[in-house]
Computed example of a mutant assay.
Amino acid sequence: MRTFQTSTEIMAPAEHVWQIQTDVARWPEWTASVSSVEALTPLPLAVGSSVRLSQPGFPAAVWTVTALEPGVHFVWESHSPGMKAVAQHMLTPTAAGCVVDLSVVYEGLLGGVIGFLMRHVTQRFLEMEARGLKWQAESLPDEMLVFNAS
Rank of each mutant, 00 (worst) to 15 (best):
P42Q: 04
E107A: 10
E107I: 01
T6H: 01
H79S: 04
I114W: 06
P70A: 11
N148C: 06
V72L: 11
M128R: 13
Q88E: 14
W18F: 10
L68I: 03
P28H: 10
L110I: 03
S54R: 15
F116G: 00
H120N: 13
M118F: 13
R124E: 09
V86D: 03
E69Y: 00
L126R: 05
G57E: 07
R2T: 02
Q88P: 02
A14N: 10
V65P: 02
A149R: 15
H79L: 04
T64Q: 15
T122Y: 01
A12D: 10
G57I: 00
H89P: 03
R131T: 12
V51D: 05
M90Q: 15
A67M: 05
V113P: 07
E143C: 12
A137I: 01
P93S: 12
Q136E: 15
A95K: 15
E15K: 14
Q88Y: 03
A87I: 00
P141C: 04
E38H: 11
W27L: 06
S80Y: 08
G57V: 08
P56S: 10
K84L: 06
S103M: 03
V86E: 06
D23W: 12
R124L: 06
M144E: 13
L91M: 05
R2F: 00
L53I: 14
H73W: 11
F147G: 08
M118H: 07
Q5N: 13
P81Y: 14
L109A: 14
T64C: 01
E138W: 07
L68W: 04
C98F: 09
G97I: 02
S78A: 14
Q55C: 08
E143F: 09
S7H: 04
S7Y: 00
E129D: 14
L109D: 06
A25M: 09
T8I: 15
G112A: 01
Q136L: 06
W27F: 08
L53E: 13
F58K: 10
D23N: 15
F147H: 13
P13C: 06
P81K: 12
L45N: 09
P42D: 11
A14Y: 06
Y106T: 02
P56Q: 07
M11P: 00
V24C: 09
T92A: 11
P13D: 15
S139E: 09
S139W: 10
S139G: 03
P28V: 05
L133N: 07
S33Y: 02
K84I: 08
N148K: 14
M11E: 14
E29G: 02
M144T: 13
V72Y: 08
A14G: 00
G48R: 12
S7W: 02
A60P: 11
E29W: 08
G57S: 07
M128E: 15
E107D: 12
E69H: 13
E9T: 09
E77A: 05
P56G: 11
L40C: 00
G115W: 05
L43E: 08
L133E: 08
T8A: 13
S150D: 13
K134T: 00
P44A: 03
V113S: 04
W76E: 04
R124H: 14
M118Q: 05
L102M: 09
A32L: 02
S36P: 05
G115P: 01
V121D: 04
N148I: 04
E143L: 11
V121N: 07
G108Y: 05
V86W: 02
F116D: 02
E15W: 07
